[in-house]
Design a protein around this nucleic acid. Structure first.
Lengths: 301, 301
DNA sequence: CTCCATAATTCCGGAAATGAGATTTTTTCC
DNA sequence: GGAAAAAATCTCATTTCCGGAATTATGGAG
């Protein structure tokens, strides 16, 4: 029994879907299928009942889920416990607005409980600026979104800066275009019936992805707003289409009255300077890694 | 982090030796070394201090040991918990005298605590007879010693019977010739200054191994006794050399006053009919497997 | 002090497990 | 009934893992 199998199991159990779980843990679906099958064979019990496309836990799966959670928690605790010098001092973490809203609350709570002696300094910003700050030692690490492969050529500086850094994927976000409530479904930016695209700062990767997508088939201007709440308010007026990951949208008070269009999946990376990993950073890294498959994914169906 | 690495870690931690741990978990020493190194790298901490040939736990190793134990226990509990139908009824287990004495007490206690509804029927006997009983459905499973490769040809019937069974190694025993207290050290059977070799029944694998060894350089008769206590008493008279695994000798009341000679390592196998694994058997199998690296090895140094 | 036996590590080749894609099958939704 | 989507299956390249041989290091005996 391998702890990575258990991580995969947890993801499938939560998402009730091989495909989604695969995205969440950064693997390919066929692989997830086989790992689950191996686990089932190893335990000699069927963990999921395959009702067509849905994967629902069997009764045995439910009981195993409880143990799986405890095993992961215990493994994390073990990792943290053997740290020779208890992390202390300050850790300067940079984060995107969206990650701060959706993913960090739980993780930071956990981290604080484990290492109360570390004082966390959170800085919000766009991916570009955060990366620069890490390179320039103004931050110890940051959570950023890297543009998808196809767009990497456009911002050579950014990419060059990343070369000097350690990077590790910790989350996967589904990036959305959010449309006003009455707006018809769209296939491409040409179908947009709004006056602008509402996004955050220019250095924001999500904004760049959206602009890149829009540019192909329309000439909409971008209107710059300060927060995701402001963006959604702007969408609510009917004048703009917003850009945000699903995890953020799911937190918002208007759950149903918006139409969305998928722009694709974007990884969130934890970046840090190579060979400069203070104990507090490693602890933070471990806490984030342990949450990989485990975060609440709110009402994806 | 892989649970098999943790099993290996536990073995090394207990034995303070890569070589012994390798035997205990049924692997080759180089492999054990690598797995420990991987674990250390993964945790980014040094678990053992290599003082020459000894492997002693570091302080971090000590704290990890506690977690390792809990992880293995939790994993076993998880396995047992998902069993769809709780084992019940009876399980007929055959065992060698030696295994019953040294290895089973702890395992059976644990098993009884977990599955009080299973009534265990223990039968003691020689490996040959036990194997026959399993084939003939007089037992559900048995713990036997298989002759080492070199001797397999001699008892074709026995080997043929095993072909029809599932086999899995669960323990490794160090087989010894036990000499009377004043007896000089020996290199081979030719150096023996006793009248006979004291062993159990003819079907006993340990006896056969000893006879095979003796035959090469002496013509000593075998005197057959009914129990290991009887054998040791016979050795104490100075007239015989006894045959028994170290784990049994270690349990005996005369710890120091005997001289021993190593005959080699012999695996203890759990055998069962193929495709005939009642729930209670699987539970028993899991309990034994989980103890692989964990049993108390008494004063090997 | 040197040689020898023992233990750990390193090195290397074959075997097994893993993961990514392509393909197939099944199900659900039009 | 057909199209879309999801899971399972298959294949292949890659990685990892394991066992055995060679190497290094240590402690003990002469």
């Amino acid at each position: 029994m391998d702890l990575s199998s258990i991580e995969i199991f947890l993801a499938v159990a939560r998402d009730r879907s091989v495909t989604k779980a695969a995205k969440a843990v950064g693997r390919v679906p066929s692989n997830v299928t086989t790992r689950i099958q191996q686990l089932e064979e190893d335990l000699n019990v069927s963990l999921f009942s395959r009702d067509g496309k849905k994967m629902t836990l069997t009764r045995e799966g439910e009981t195993f889920l409880a143990y799986a959670d405890r095993l992961m928690a215990l493994a994390l605790e073990a990792r943290q416990a053997v740290r020779p010098l208890a992390p202390s001092g300050t850790l300067r973490v940079g984060t995107m607005e969206s990650t701060a809203a959706s993913r960090l609350p739980a993780a930071l709570t956990q981290f604080n409980r484990m290492w109360p002696d570390v004082s966390l300094h959170l800085t919000m910003g766009a991916s570009r600026d955060l990366a620069r700050a890490v390179v320039g030692d103004a931050l110890d690490c940051a959570l950023i979104a890297r543009p998808p492969k196809a767009m990497r050529g456009e911002d050579a500086d950014f990419e060059a800066g990343l070369k000097a850094l350690d990077m590790e994927p910790v989350f996967v976000e589904e990036l959305l275009i959010v449309l006003p409530s009455g707006h018809p479904a769209i296939k491409s930016a040409a179908d947009l019936r709004v006056g602008s695209i509402a996004a955050l700062e220019p250095g924001c990767t999500y904004r760049r992805i959206a602009e890149n997508w829009a540019r192909k088939s329309s000439a909409l201007p971008t209107s710059e707003l300060g927060s995701y709440h402001a963006i959604l308010a702007s969408v609510a007026t009917g004048k703009a289409a917003g850009v945000m990951p699903r995890s953020v949208l799911d937190l918002m008070p208007w759950p149903t009255s918006v139409q969305t269009h998928q722009l694709g999946l974007v990884e969130t990376l934890l970046i840090s300077r190579k060979n400069d990993h203070p104990s507090a950073f490693n602890a933070f890294h471990e806490v984030l890694s342990a949450r990989k498959g485990r975060d609440i994914r709110l009402a994806t169906n």
